[in-house]
Write a protein that binds this DNA or RNA. Structure first.
Length: 422
DNA sequence: CACTATGATTAGTC
DNA sequence: GACTAATCATAGTG
């Protein structure tokens, strides 16, 4: 509208095109008595009024006359120039801004999550890495993994369809505006540069909408991810075999249940869990064993027997005639420790007072350990540097804080053993 | 549903 | 950084 006014002013100045004698003569007189600017405005208003009074044909004819006027291109170029120098130069300052850091961040994240990148990209890789880091059984993680992937694909699909919609809308609107401006440029001064600028403005507006889309997509991915992480955090018991392997190691190294890094790695490989899970397991096991040795007595005996039997088998196979010290070595089931409680009680009675469970068990296990070690049964674990060098002094790991809880658990003094050997 | 077992986490220590 | 001790949170069980 401002442009139009200015244009009309310009046209008035062209002479021959303006109708100064239109309207109420009185008002004209009044205007003449006023100052020059007011007079100009009055003229303009009158001209506008005159235009509205004109018939459509008349207006068209005048428009045509305007368009064909020999001075029109020159006038338009001058007006365009003036516009460039005033309004647009002010606006132009904030243009050519660098790419928005936030949108870059969002783009990076979407790319990293495999939403905006190429199909089957980082998302699944990230999920796989996350699953691997969390450990757990491969089947479980793969189920969760596929679930995660499906959800991510869904998000991806929505994102892309929305993005496409926005892009389409943006180009449609841009085309529309461009056509409109081109059309208008015939009647008001619009330079191609201005059209470009307008397009840029439209694109900015649409990119802010896109940013919102990206933002909400990111949020969705984060929510999905956190859910997935939560799912991975859900505790899953290790499988029986893994627990067995860990327990075997623990009880066969009861004097120093601190597997070295290598041992942990090997155990992790054997059990299909991560090294940190092995560490967790040993940490928990040590503390829980120490806290309540009695509770673990049976288990300890079981594994002591188990390892002994295994070792006996190995030794029997290795040197069939050279093992008189391992009776019944040929039939594991009939090993003399088949009644573990009895075996333990027997050892305890051998211990005299038999007040300290740990040493008695230790004795048992260590004896077995020694025996098996001599026959080569533990070569694999203890003979290949898999023992952690520190804390080699037997039982020191239990002695540190152990005495109150182990040798005198809550209850009557005499009931220590009934507690610990139940 | 209460209870126990157990894997994971966290704060503190060495 | 490894470890302990306490704790959390969930799985499994009767």
């Amino acid at each position: 509208m401002d442009d139009q006014t200015r244009m009309l002013t310009g046209l008035a100045g062209l002479g021959g095109l303006a109708q100064a004698d239109v309207g109420d003569p009185d008002s004209v007189r009044k205007q003449q008595s006023l100052g020059q600017p007011q007079q100009d405005i009055g003229d303009i208003l009158q001209q506008i009024m005159a235009i509205t009074d004109e018939s459509l044909d008349e207006a068209q004819a005048r428009k045509h006359a305007l368009n064909c006027h020999r001075m029109k291109p020159a006038l338009f170029s001058v007006l365009c120039e003036i516009k460039e120098k005033t309004v647009l130069s002010i606006r132009g300052v904030q243009e050519e801004d660098p790419p928005d850091p936030q949108i870059m961040r969002l783009d990076n994240m979407l790319l990293a999550e495999g939403v905006s990148g190429p199909e089957k990209g980082g998302g699944s890789a990230a999920a796989a890495a996350a699953a691997a880091a969390a450990g757990g059984s491969p089947t479980d993680s793969s189920i969760e993994h596929s679930d995660y992937r499906a959800k991510l694909a869904q998000i991806r699909q929505i994102y892309h369809s929305e993005l496409e919609k926005y892009e389409q809308a943006c180009s449609e609107f841009t085309n529309h505006v461009m056509n409109l401006l081109r059309e208008q440029s015939r009647t008001r001064p619009i330079s191609p540069k201005e059209i470009e600028r307008m397009v840029a403005i439209i694109h900015r507006k649409f990119s802010s909408i896109q940013m919102q889309l990206k933002q909400s997509t990111c949020e969705a991915v984060m929510i999905l991810r956190s859910r997935f992480l939560d799912a991975r955090r859900k505790r899953r018991n290790f499988n029986k075999q893994a627990t067995e392997v860990l327990n075997e190691y623990f009880y066969s190294h009861l004097s120093n249940p601190y597997p070295s890094e290598e041992a942990k790695e090997e155990l992790a490989k054997k059990c299909g869990i991560t090294v940190s899970q092995v560490s967790n397991w040993f940490g928990n096991k040590r503390i829980r064993y120490k806290k309540n040795i009695g509770k673990f007595q049976e288990e300890a005996n079981l594994y002591a027997v188990k390892t002994a039997v295994d070792a006996a088998n190995v030794s029997a196979q290795a040197s069939q005639a050279n093992s008189p010290a391992t009776p019944n070595s040929g039939s594991p089931g009939s090993y003399s420790f088949s009644h573990t409680g009895d075996a333990y009680l027997g050892l305890r009675s051998l211990n005299g007072e038999g007040l300290n469970i740990a040493p008695s068990l230790q004795l048992q296990v260590d004896t077995l350990h020694r025996a098996t070690h001599l026959t080569g049964g533990y070569e694999e674990l203890s003979g290949s540097g898999l023992y952690t060098p520190h804390r080699l002094d037997a039982n020191s790991w239990q002695d540190t804080t152990n005495p109150p809880s182990v040798t005198s658990p809550p209850g009557p003094p005499g009931s220590v053993h009934s507690d610990t050997s139940n």
